[in-house]
Nucleic acid binder design. Structure first.
Lengths: 167, 167
DNA sequence: ACTGATAGTGTTATGTTATAACATGTTATG
DNA sequence: CATAACATGTTATAACATAACACTATCAGT
């Protein structure tokens, strides 16, 4: 029951989001990936990923733990952190440093140097690619240094929130 | 006793660091800035800045607190966090998200969108400007979003550490 | 000088995020 | 079917951060 994205034209980063596609595609992709790599997509790992992809918003580790508890899993901290580490290693989850929170990556084939746009009011987060972000961070190379991983986060206010505010 | 930088030519980001200049210049700059802005450069604020600029490496809030305690100041957490917030507001301290640590900014006149290079082995950190970093993040502008602040951190291994390792 | 506003520091308590260490269960493989 | 490797569970604690309130100092206006 795979939905296709409806024919929107605007590229409003926080709005043009067809969640049905996201969820189903993402589950399928992660299943395929794990199969191909001979990794176990266990019930716990599946559940954590589902929790994250369901809302597609950043969740703290302890929020994830609560959700796990509600669904009958153990809810002691290491459970969440271990699974999150695992999913992050494989690019299916990213940590949003500015929020101490985790977000699912629906498409791990994306650049492995994601950038995030974070609204500090509604705390919505969008993952953007280099072109959209106006930020270029491909292959950063520094004298005397080998870059392994980049963290790029842009915090501000989305138009929805700024319109809502009197300020 | 202001030292001038010696005539090095390489731009080895982790190595070409004349600390004497850094410290004295930085203290002078922050004093002038506070004077001009009619802000108090109190003993506590001075001490926190000195602690950070002394080693010019990232320190956790609790490391700073220990140092404060040794120097006769109170060492309960809010003390450090308040001063750090204050110094960050004015650009003299930055937080390194990837380390939950704070680093002094010797030159707050730099771009207000700093980027950091972090060695995950020795945990040394260098602040780089856009040109050096190969990363361009000036005026990032996103559809439907007003960027207020950017966080850019590049984690990897510096050549000193990678030479030292057998790996 | 008195009053009140503001800013800075101190203190206690607690909230939040993350990991260490070890026990138990489960799966793949020789 | 033994055993190595992987996965999960549990307890305890470490590390990071803030809330709420008390006290002091400084300074502007009266």
């Amino acid at each position: 029951m795979k939905k296709k994205r409806e024919g929107k034209t605007t590229s409003k980063i926080f709005d043009d989001h067809d969640h049905g596609m996201c969820f189903d595609d993402a589950i399928e992709q992660i299943e395929n990936y794990f199969l191909k790599k001979n990794l176990q997509f266990t019930p716990l790992r599946r559940k954590v990923f589902e929790i994250l992809i369901r809302d597609h918003k950043p969740l703290g580790a302890y929020e994830i733990l609560e959700a796990l508890g509600r669904d009958g899993f153990s809810s002691s901290p290491p459970i969440a952190y271990r699974v999150l580490d695992f999913l992050m290693e494989h690019g299916f989850v990213h940590k949003i440093q500015g929020l101490n929170a985790f977000i699912a990556c629906p498409n791990p084939n994306h650049s492995h140097s994601p950038a995030f746009v974070i609204c500090r009011k509604c705390e919505k987060v969008a993952e953007v690619d280099e072109k959209k972000s106006g930020i270029s961070f491909a292959n950063p190379s520094i004298d005397n240094f080998e870059v392994e991983k980049t963290t790029v986060e842009m915090t501000g206010v989305c138009t929805t929130c700024s319109r809502a505010a009197t300020i």
